[in-house]
Design a protein around this nucleic acid. Structure first.
Lengths: 201, 201
DNA sequence: CGTCGCATTGATATCGCTCAAATCCGGTGG
DNA sequence: CCACCGGATTTGAGCGATATCAATGCGACG
């Protein structure tokens, strides 16, 4: 697929009419864990991180939503958000009231069908991430990422954000990722041009 | 929820009529990676593991489907299965042709609505697993499992299969899990009665 | 020009992986 | 009933990969 997370969905006019445009600066919250759910969101530009916090207060990245993606789909089924949503860049979002969304799912057959496809696609993406996190070595995780999300024969992959973000996505510290990337370049299994990663051979 | 994965779905008569009952002995395959997709499955009894294989041939457990759960929902959208489905116990399954399933999703509003809920629930479960696998210490993973899947104030959790299976689910070797459980019992943060785990305090 | 956060590399500690071995337990066949 | 077998369970020893702590460079931005 063109972009692994691209979430094409033809928005019914009713939904567009009911949507609100909101903007967030980096670090600003869209919602907090425990808030009552009210909306589903779509990222028009920027990026929003969904995070939870471990016992030692360390951040655990649940999801990194980028341009073209929905997030907080779960708000359709549960009463409260179960994580924090924090803009990691200047971001422009669309906010859709869950009530309208649910109505549409009940009455617009085509919309429901597309939503099912979208959920299924997300499920596959997250399952791939589980598979990746189950790999024990850092280099295997990087390789897996490029193989499953990269484009073309060289599995070209563009860093969505910073390398630090990628490290969190891979369940590694940023130091470990830097070292792993360096080692893979040294061993000539990987090429790097700024934010572009490419597998060799 | 009663059972974390319980997937209640009222099966329309058409679907029931089109379903086939199949049985598998432990170790037998339901489908293999690369097979053309044709069916969605439901586990009536037993358990089916969805696995893929790393470069060194090591097994990576994608999902452990148990009684009351669907699996291979992705077959509705993709042309081929992308993992092996292997019974890990003597199992009785229901097999639903994808075509019939898709038809119903298009025409049975109520069924589509339920399927959306089911996918959303699965998404949340898998995301929780991602969060778990992102934790770095074995004991944190165990604690997280009990907190998110356990029942009641003590987060009581019943091992679905063997402790070895659980280790794979947690992305650990079985040795590491045994030691971690023993250590947590020693430190009195966990109690164990056969297949029942319980958090203390 | 000072500050902040990302990028990068070094040194060290630690936790889980690996290999190994002993025990337990249920099932099976003599 | 007992010997045997395979798989799960449990514990030991050692190693290695990654986390952790630390230091530096670098670019953006006020």
């Amino acid at each position: 697929m063109a972009a692994p997370h691209a979430q094409t969905l033809n928005l019914p006019p009713i939904l567009v009419a009911a949507s609100t445009r909101i903007d967030r600066e980096p670090g600003e919250a869209v919602f907090r864990s425990g808030d009552r759910t009210h909306s589903v969101y779509f990222v028009q530009a920027g990026a929003v991180r969904l995070v939870r916090y471990g016992r030692a207060g360390e951040e655990v990245l649940l999801h990194d939503s980028r341009a073209g993606e929905f997030f907080a789909e779960a708000s359709l089924d549960s009463a409260r958000y179960h994580c924090d949503a924090i803009a990691s860049e200047q971001s422009r979002l669309l906010q859709f009231p869950s009530a309208v969304f649910n109505q549409l799912l009940d009455h617009d057959r085509e919309f429901a069908r597309q939503w099912i496809s979208l959920l299924a696609r997300q499920l596959r993406t997250v399952r791939a991430r589980v598979e990746r996190l189950s790999l024990k070595s850092a280099s295997e995780r990087v390789r897996h990422l490029l193989m499953s999300e990269g484009r073309g024969p060289a599995c070209e992959y563009r860093l969505p954000g910073t390398a630090k973000d990628l490290a969190r996505l891979l369940g590694l510290t940023h130091e470990a990722l830097y070292r792993t990337l360096a080692a893979m370049e040294r061993e000539r299994v990987l090429e790097r041009n700024g934010p572009i990663l490419r597998l060799v051979r």
